[in-house]
Nucleic acid binder design. Structure first.
Length: 597
RNA sequence: CGGGGCGUAGCUCAGCUUGGUAGAGCGCUCGGUUUGGGACCGAGAGGCCGCAGGUUCGAAUCCUGUCGCCCCGACCA
């Protein structure tokens, strides 16, 4: 039998930590506030944090869980530099595509480097270096590494920093079926990781974006501080709003519809004023009231392409909906999207602000074959045969009963309208509800884009050169830590789930009596012998109130108070989460804590 | 990048309107008392009042500029 490994409990009197009595002035969200206050992290620069011993311990716990599950998923760990040369990113255009989003630097010779925001390129190149046969595949490799993004606005402490730690994994297969399998293994691993971390999550369809991938899902933790909006239906559909697809109504015949008619609608530059005036002056023949959904709103957007060229496009959508700029960014990626400015309107006198529409009696106004030549794209709800009230391109006038397909045609369909609660899920699983979430993981079938660009090919069974297909799988380690803190706290401090708590048990010597300290020392040694990682508040001259307060702040879920009960051989087992304190005989407390696990 | 707010002690802040040369609480050090919910008494250490110009006999305070930080929005894992 090997002897006991000598372990040393962490004594609060020695621990490099300083708890703060008050909230730091620059912290807003709970996780940021409490992690700083309890001495886990310190701000170093905007969005950049130093890690103190307590914070590091939690990080390591999270990383250990991730490493175990990566191993279970058959992924091997490697480690790339954070500092990388420009060239690989040049090949895939990301040196420019990333724009201001990356930290760039030069060495003394003037050569360009970057602090990697993500590592697809170098992983791909390394595999290309070493492997050339299908027999080497499939391969999954990952690293836990710091990433750098020059965020326009870092915020909320660890939730959106400029330096953050991510586990990023990459899979390499030579068949699509292989990629599906690798993807599924990572996806399964993520489910196990989040389960072990005790984190709520929703898997949502994500936008595959300009990367041309075939499948992409995000793991979102539902929380009001989340920056993603997602939808879900009772029938099981879930998607990021950016990936939501609208069901287009069936085309209708417009044989029997009455012709369009231009009517006076004075002072109606907004949808609401238009609806009011329409009901007042031009009521619908069948008596039903006009609503915003009967109007076709034409919004002018300005797109700026990567090369800087600016193009106006008009999008037509039902008047009861606004443009969702995030969805617009996705729809027009990689161009940047903003609302058209006053200057844009001045360049196009054909656009009568407030009364824009696709049609006049003289001919089409919008669309590439029109007099303005401005691209005109329609929301899927504006299907052939649907009739609308829309601008007549003249101040104070709208055209009623303008029918899509009969009276006007668009250059295409576009998904830029906001998604509203109650909209039908595209898979027919019922109406959706909206919620906020924080992205904590992302699994993504990259396909062959990177392998193609970087020339990663292998010989297959037939001796034929085939391009490898890849997947990319990310989990934000430091973000997860913050999200856990965000989801597990109360007014007094943090409350860690046992799996990630910096310590297994926090022993407080609650009075200054020598007998109490001696008993606490003895108990701590017993915990150590039983392989518990113990935080021991041995501070000799600190009052009990301060110790209790610090224990609550630091958030170890199991606290043992050694104090005045010691005369009767009793200590208290304190459940941080419920606040319940239970008297326990000092001889039974180690077993009692073990039983909690 | 647009809007708002703030830079004074390690931390949280007051002082600025009405200029006179720096304060409180907490924390820290020393001595004493106290001891199960953030104790008390006494004595201390600690600040180019973000930076630079200007006005003035005199600027934390007024003026100009500048830098930085935080929050909301845009953007983003």
């Amino acid at each position: 039998m090997p002897g006991k490994v000598a372990r040393v409990p962490t004594r609060l009197s020695q621990l490099f930590v300083r708890t703060l009595r008050e909230d730091p002035a620059d912290a807003e969200v709970a996780s940021h506030r409490l992690l700083v206050r309890a001495g886990y992290i310190r701000r170093q620069a905007p969005g950049v944090f130093a890690w103190l011993p307590l914070g590091l311990k939690v990080r390591r716990k999270i990383e250990a869980i991730i490493r175990e599950e990566m191993a279970n998923a058959g992924a091997q760990e490697v480690h790339f530099p954070a500092l990388l040369p420009r060239e690989p990113y040049e090949v895939t255009n990301r040196w420019t595509d990333y724009g201001d989003g990356i930290f760039r630097l030069k060495d003394r010779k003037g050569a360009d480097y970057l602090l990697a925001p993500t590592h697809e390129e170098v992983f791909t190149l390394l595999v290309k270096d070493l492997y050339s046969s299908y027999k080497d595949l499939p391969l999954s490799i990952y690293q836990i590494q710091d990433k750098y993004r020059d965020e326009a606005r870092p915020r909320a402490g660890l939730l959106r920093g400029r330096e953050f730690t991510m586990k990023d994994a990459y899979s390499f297969d030579y068949t699509d079926a292989g990629l599906d399998e690798s993807y599924q293994r990572q996806r399964d691993a993520y489910e196990r990781i989040f389960a072990r971390l005790g984190l709520d999550y929703v898997i949502v369809e994500a936008d595959a974006g300009a990367m041309g991938g075939s499948r992409s899902e995000e793991f979102l933790h539902p929380t009001p501080v989340g920056e993603d909006t997602f939808v879900r239906s009772n029938g099981g559909y879930a998607a990021n709003v950016e990936a939501f697809r609208t069901i287009a109504p069936e085309s209708r015949s417009y044989e029997k519809l009455t012709p369009a008619e231009v009517l006076d609608t004075p002072n109606t530059p907004t949808i609401q004023t238009l609806v009011d005036v329409a009901n007042e002056k031009h009521p619908r023949p069948d008596g039903r009231a006009w609503t915003a959904a009967d109007t076709l709103k034409n919004i002018v957007l300005a797109l700026t392409a990567l090369d800087g060229t600016r193009e106006l496009v008009v999008v037509g959508l039902p008047g009861d909906r606004d443009v969702d700029l995030k969805r617009a960014e996705v729809a027009f990626a990689p161009a940047e999207v903003e609302a058209a400015t006053e200057a844009d309107f001045q360049k196009h006198p054909g656009l009568v602000k407030g009364y824009i529409g696709p049609w006049t009696a003289a001919g089409p106004v919008l669309g590439i074959r029109s007099e303005t030549g401005i691209r005109f794209l329609l929301d899927p709800r504006v299907s052939d045969g649907s009739g609308w009230i829309t601008g007549a391109n003249e101040h104070g006038k709208h055209v009623f009963g303008l029918v899509a397909g009969r009276d006007f045609e668009a250059d295409g369909v576009v998904e830029v309208a906001e998604v509203l609660a109650g909209d039908p899920a595209p898979d027919g699983s019922g109406p959706v509800e909206l919620a906020r979430g924080m992205e904590i993981g992302h699994v993504f079938q990259l396909g062959r884009k990177y392998a193609e660009a970087l020339g990663l090919k292998v010989l297959d069974e037939n001796g034929k050169l085939v391009t490898v297909t890849m997947g990319s799988y990310g989990i934000g380690v430091t973000r997860i830590l913050a999200v856990i803190a965000e989801a597990n706290n109360d007014s007094r401090g943090l409350i860690w789930p046992r799996n990630v708590s910096p310590f297994d048990v926090h022993v407080v010597a609650a009075t200054k009596e020598p007998e109490v300290h001696a008993a606490a020392e003895k108990l701590v040694a017993e915990f150590e012998d039983a392989r518990f990682d113990v935080l021991f508040d041995d501070r000799p001259k600190v009052s009990p109130g301060v110790k209790f307060g610090d224990a609550e702040l630091i958030g170890v879920p199991v606290i043992v108070i050694v104090g005045k009960g010691i005369a009767e051989g009793r200590v208290e087992l304190w459940d941080r989460r419920t606040g319940v304190k239970t008297p326990v005989g000092i001889g039974e407390v180690v077993d009692a804590v073990a039983a909690l696990a």
